[in-house]
């Protein structure tokens, strides 16, 4: 019975989309797109600005001290968007399968890698989904996850240690005032982290005003005062920039690629 309902629902949904396609033209689709964009944004805006405790036609949030009548929907809409977004994963999968499938089937150079891709993907999927049912799959899962997936990730991550060294070597040259300042700050903070660096100023007292000049104090001050304030100021600019962009997207004022295209 439930299966039938689900199937009928699916058919009805597809039929609706078909009708929508049949009875709309370029202009009405454009209008549809603009209004959907607007409504999508409007919901979150209204949920934010309507004071908590506000009801609508007797519709109240369970927790009126914190929420308005739209707040309970946030979670539900979030769940729907999560699920819908989940279905998009297939797009990525199709792309990967097409790319590697073509290489593999035509035996192009590098087909071994494509084969490895497929074996790894299928193995991990099967082991990941069904490991609870079979001890063999559990072993396979451990091999793939602990033997390959985790160390591969950790190794790529730790390559950063090599790269940060060469980047520092190249970037911190006293070419300009700016580069010098950047280098000086990096030097202080880096040295404050290791005992050998802390020894540079270990002769300074730990109490009194001279203590402020100990390297770990200077580093601490750089991080918590100067860095904090600078990042805050950058943040304000980014915030306003994001606000402007949101406004343009929401009101369909955005121009250029993808936006304002013929439907």
């Amino acid at each position: 019975m439930l299966a039938l309902k689900i199937l009928l629902g699916f058919a009805a949904g597809i039929a609706f989309l078909g009708l929508l396609d049949r009875f709309t033209n370029t202009r009405s689709r454009r209008l549809l797109m603009v209004s959907f964009t607007f409504l999508g944004g409007l919901f979150y805006l209204l949920e934010f600005v309507i004071p908590p405790g506000t009801g609508f036609l007797g519709w109240q949030a369970p927790n009126p001290a914190r929420d308005n009548f739209l707040s309970p929907l946030i979670e539900q809409i979030g769940q729907v968007v999560l699920v819908i977004g989940g279905f998009a994963f297939g797009l990525g999968l199709l792309n990967l399968a097409a790319l590697h499938g073509r290489t593999l089937l035509r035996g192009r150079p590098g087909w071994v890698n494509s084969l490895a891709f497929f074996v790894a993907m299928v193995g991990m999927t099967v082991a990941g989904l069904f490991q609870a049912n079979s001890p063999t799959l559990r072993t396979v899962h451990r091999l793939l996850f602990e033997g390959l997936y985790q160390p591969l990730g950790a190794s790529v991550f730790s390559i950063l240690a090599f790269f940060i060294t060469t980047a520092a070597y190249r970037a911190f040259r006293i070419r300009s005032g700016e580069a010098t300042l950047m280098m000086a700050a990096a030097f202080i903070v880096m040295m404050a982290q290791v005992p050998m660096g802390m020894m540079l100023t270990d002769w300074l007292p730990t109490q009194g005003w001279l203590a402020y000049f100990r390297i770990e104090q200077v580093s601490d001050w750089l991080m918590t005062v100067l860095n904090m304030a600078a990042l805050r100021a950058v943040g304000f600019g980014i915030g306003i920039g994001g606000l402007a962009m949101s406004l343009r997207v929401w009101l369909s004022l955005e121009k250029g690629t993808y936006f304002g295209k013929e439907m």
Binding site: A161, I164, T165, A168, Y169, R170, F172, R173, I174, R175, M183, F187, M190, M191, Q193, V194, P195, M196, G197
Partner: peptide, 24 residues
């Protein structure tokens, strides 16, 4: 482990000095 990390920090400092010497 900390010794290894410390020596890496020292290496970076040495490299920065070396790089600047070269540059000059």
């Amino acid at each position: 482990a900390m010794n290894a990390v410390s020596i890496a920090h020292v290496l970076i400092v040495v490299l920065i000095v070396l790089g600047n010497y070269q540059y000059f």
